[in-house]
Design a protein around this nucleic acid. Sequence first.
DNA 1: ACAATATTTAGATATTTGTATAAATATCTC
DNA 2: GAGATATTTATACAAATATCTAAATATTGT
Lengths: 92, 92
Amino acid sequence: MDDSLFRALADPTRRKILELLTEKDRTAGEIAEQFPIAFASVSHHLGVLKAADLVATEREGQFIRYRLNTTVFQEVVRYFMTRFGGEGDKNA
Amino acid sequence: MDDSLFRALADPTRRKILELLTEKDRTAGEIAEQFPIAFASVSHHLGVLKAADLVATEREGQFIRYRLNTTVFQEVVRYFMTRFGGEGDKNA
DNA sequence: ACAATATTTAGATATTTGTATAAATATCTC
DNA sequence: GAGATATTTATACAAATATCTAAATATTGT
């Protein structure tokens, strides 16, 4: 299991970004305006998430649209279920 | 979802400790000797895991025995499944 | 090509973190 | 209680990280 994945998940801002992307795909700016920190800082977080393959991007004119890469989340779930008891899903 | 949980999982040594505890409960010393770092450093990691409630301890004479707290792992799985697509288990 | 908008990259800084050594605490045995 | 073993806590330090401001890059529209 890739180290960058868990490190990416370790930051609350990044987890919040992921949750925002659960609702719908968003541009970098739309994401950034949800946080009290500088745009450049959010951009850094987006880079970390992308490096961990948790999100993917697509340019759309001037904008860059971010979306979740759900495949990787399935890998995370699989990691936990296979290693730490497969009963975690019974009443999820 | 608690921040300490994901931060605890972000370190590869700590994840390895958790995997060791999957096999069987172990004392701090048994865990520490599996790693090339100082005992005190492993002890620090154990403290982080315990603070995140990922492991529990029980004193056994001179020894302190560590075991997984599987409940918390189920919470992690639930976190991912509810937020990021519940299909992650289909072929786990 | 220029100005405006969207986003990332670069450089700087303060905080956090992983590790080490040394000291402290707890338990056991004699 | 003294000495041995097991473990944690304290302190220090180097490396990693989150944030900032400023500069750079990319796209659009005039």
